[in-house]
Design a binder for these strands. Sequence first.
DNA 1: TTTCGTTATATTTGTAAAAGTATAACGAAA
DNA 2: TTTCGTTATACTTTTACAAATATAACGAAA
Lengths: 109, 109
Amino acid sequence: MKIKSKIWIETDEGILISEGRIQLLKLIESTGSLNKAAKEMNISYQKAWKLIDASNKASAEPLIATQVGGNKGGGTVVTPYGKSLIESFEKINVACWEFLDLELKKHSL
Amino acid sequence: MKIKSKIWIETDEGILISEGRIQLLKLIESTGSLNKAAKEMNISYQKAWKLIDASNKASAEPLIATQVGGNKGGGTVVTPYGKSLIESFEKINVACWEFLDLELKKHSL
DNA sequence: TTTCGTTATATTTGTAAAAGTATAACGAAA
DNA sequence: TTTCGTTATACTTTTACAAATATAACGAAA
């Protein structure tokens, strides 16, 4: 018997960050490209763009910085704020898993 | 900024219980009927039945007891085990919310 | 100045989940 | 024994969401 969870953070403007978006941000970090990140995640570029767009709209400051054009077409990088968000979210997520495992043990099901 | 979560419990046979199924079980408790519970939840009877069926298949012992036929057509009641599951789940869920609120405060976002 | 891969966006197509429709079996009470 | 609302199940239709397709703009480097 396993207890599972999904967490996310919202602002008044919508969902700021969630598990899937964290995964996408981390792939942007490692690839330097939203296009490549989407491919590695096996989702369409359009879906990836919408996710990032929604997060940016829900955020007071941008999570990513994009460059359109250039010798390699451009690219996308994660801002320092985006990186801090990744770090915080992952810490909270791990803590939540550990907390829930302990909670489940308290109850005999 | 709000942190939100969804939790659920799985066994090897699938999802045992989740937020939506808890809501459904509680409506079965109060109405004595899967049919009425589905209507109050604004989902189709077929969907409600599938949810309950999946939970029963994932459970070592039944969460509900059904009676087919009778002067009022029959009905469905929640077993003592089902009731204990509701109680445990809701306690864990509330504890999780409180935990996450505290966790979020630790991080300045 | 031409090239390239990227961002950004709109539109169409496909698909999986939900809803809707239909129907049989059931059995206590009137 | 007839009635009734329910459980249980199959099948069809609808809908929402994801994927696919298409296309323009961009700008550093060769």
